[in-house]
Design a protein around this nucleic acid. Structure first.
Lengths: 205, 205
DNA sequence: TTTCTTTTTGACCAACCGGTCAAACTCACG
DNA sequence: CGTGAGTTTGACCGGTTGGTCAAAAAGAAA
């Protein structure tokens, strides 16, 4: 009954606890701002015990980021070239907004890495990410060309989807401070973003 | 010929050099990630010499942030209730994008502070910022009501302007990695964002 | 139980950090 | 020039940090 080869029950449990704790601390204080001791305490372990599972603080961070990259791009991968153009884009926006709502710590972790110049995942941006985006941009370009959606730059369209959805996770404090305690940012954002992209993508009559 | 009272020529020069260096380091590594030594070296001073001008590392950071807040909100303050609605909003977008292009370090400094929960300027968000935004949101709401622009939530409209323009500064590495070295993000963004907001704000016929 | 492996920990270390301080140096100005 | 205020620095300090290590404790298998 060994799920992962070479992984004991205790190893699985502790590794998961460490990554969960590290996500909390890293996303709130950044890499340098986080201390191994803090992560260990939050994971219910002693510092040397944590270093038994991950060789360095860096290794934890890299492990989090690489695991994150995949799930973060899943919604874009799901964009179906054979679906209805407007529906596909709007569904992508919705899925991306849900990701921001349900995984804000992951979003902030990613944001901090990029803002600081992507020192740890810069390579993946110019290869894996660019490949995927170029691929989907071509799909969108074809939709534009066929008159199914308004003519827009596909790359900037994707940027604007990232920007608008992640904003509600990354700048959560600011958004809530401005809206006040009575309003729910994510619920409102869903309707607003739907309207925004719908009007921009509406093909010329 | 004393510009600032109680400030010698050397004081002015060194204070400016320190703030300039601190902006570089803080925006790239965050508060905790920056070291006083690093800022001092980049400013061409020794560490104790730097501490002669600013009592603590924290004081430098606060000085930067408070100076930034003002200039950062100037474009929104300039939104004229008596101007043409569409022109005013589009001009705001353009000014905000220029700010991102010309002061990307400032944008990233601000972004890091917010992402980390705004521990140093959180108070100002719920007071000064909210007041200004609520004020301008009311102007926009009136424009919508009068049928001069399409009906949109004014607060989220402002959020989307912040989000879309700052994205090109804060996520510069990612944007350039995806677009490739031949394309210029900011030039393209100007046209794209103009089209985006124009189509969203176009009043129903 | 015994034996072997996996897990946990207290003590420790070298490097680094923000900040202090007294002494030395530099500069403007009479 | 002299003199006093403004400026710079090397040496230093207490606390923190990422990481090591040997040895103890806990599990697993027989």
């Amino acid at each position: 009954m060994k799920d992962q080869p070479g992984q004991t029950r205790i190893q699985r449990k502790n590794r998961a606890a460490i990554l969960e704790a590290a996500l909390n601390v890293f996303s709130q204080h950044g890499f340098r701002g986080a201390t191994v001791d803090q992560i260990a305490r939050e994971a219910g372990l002693s510092k040397p015990n944590l270093l038994y599972y991950f060789p360095t603080k860096d290794a934890i961070h890299v492990s989090l980021l690489s695991e994150l990259m995949d799930t973060w791009l899943d919604p874009l991968r799901a964009l179906d070239p054979n679906g209805d153009p407007t529906d596909e884009v709007l569904a992508y926006v919705r899925r991306k907004l849900e990701l921001s709502r349900d995984f804000p710590r992951e979003s902030r972790l990613f944001a901090q890495e990029i803002v600081q110049g992507a020192p740890r995942i810069g390579e993946a941006l110019a290869t894996d990410l660019k490949t995927l985006v170029d691929d989907k941009a071509e799909v969108i370009r074809a939709w534009s060309e066929a008159g199914k959606i308004a003519p827009v730059d596909p790359h900037h369209l994707i940027f604007s989807i990232w920007s608008l959805t992640q904003h509600y996770a990354d700048f959560d404090v600011q958004v809530r401070a401005v809206l006040g305690p009575e309003r729910d940012p994510f619920t409102e954002a869903e309707g607003y973003l739907d309207g925004l992209f719908r009007s921009m993508l509406a093909p010329a009559p």
